[in-house]
Design a protein around this nucleic acid. Sequence first.
DNA 1: CAGTATGTTCAGTTTAAACTGTACGAAAAA
DNA 2: TTTTTCGTACAGTTTAAACTGAACATACTG
Lengths: 169, 169
Amino acid sequence: MSETENNSIMSEVQYHAITEFSKTIEMFSLTPSEALLFSTLYIEGEPMTLDEMSEALAKSKTSMSTGIRSLLDLNLVERVWKKGVRKDLYTANSDLFNKFMSSYIHKWLDAANRQKHSLEETRLLLKKERKEIRTGEADHLEEKLNEMINFHCLISKAFSEIDPSTSDS
Amino acid sequence: MSETENNSIMSEVQYHAITEFSKTIEMFSLTPSEALLFSTLYIEGEPMTLDEMSEALAKSKTSMSTGIRSLLDLNLVERVWKKGVRKDLYTANSDLFNKFMSSYIHKWLDAANRQKHSLEETRLLLKKERKEIRTGEADHLEEKLNEMINFHCLISKAFSEIDPSTSDS
DNA sequence: CAGTATGTTCAGTTTAAACTGTACGAAAAA
DNA sequence: TTTTTCGTACAGTTTAAACTGAACATACTG
């Protein structure tokens, strides 16, 4: 088997891996481009420069720059320094499961709690005003608010259970 | 307190409730418009016609039609029949938590399994061909594939745990 | 049957997101 | 210092999604 054939098989395998894994990453509510970028960085293993990413994905360096910034914000990628290399180098966090799962779970928990509070305030407003209001409509609304608030509690409970950052082994 | 004032408080409360709850629904990967529609339908409680939804959301009837169809596909809304009413009536499924959670979990499980299989095939391809290939690069790729496959296993495990349809009380 | 009401299809428009190339500022090299 | 090498801001373009109105098909009404 020739060197060239080896390379072609390797790139085919790598291409599949990147493409498929990217789809999984998207499910953690990253955009397709962010996911593709992370996936590339992760499978490559070695830290990459913006120019290398640009080359690998055939997209502009500007896209890489903004994409990397998003990934940095999400704490999924970090900048590393290498002796003698002037360009910025970025590498994917290797602790996949904990990083993704816990940040995802917390996004859920934060949002669920925020919205639960908001609904509780709404319920308070209704209760305060409804001394004077005696309609089935108000009853109905209060009932619905209770249901919704309970819904948020159940969500929080469920996601807390699988939060890898609260060691439940 | 006048009738009008009551109405205005009621609509304010209802408006808040719909808006906030809609945000939560969005998190189950519904589009903002689908979420808003469901939220409206849910809080209204009574079955609604396309025209009523159109009126309530100030959007075209076409939008309501396509929106409702999506919600029907997702099994979050159902069509009901009422004596003497010619128009189609739709109502939100009231079993919020089970409907949303289990469909969401299954979406995750399906995707995770599908992509895991795909990666396993890729790994097989690599193993089959690599008898001849003896490079660190191939080692690295295989290692990464193993990590990714393991990642998918952990995802499946986590989401299975909170699947409300497999009674874990 | 004719006439009307209702839901959906379809083509076009609006709106928002992703991407690109140029230009600029900061930092390194010469 | 001047020149080169980077990364990013910005403005414009492309692309995709959401939405609309008009036309159509089906089913109901009288």
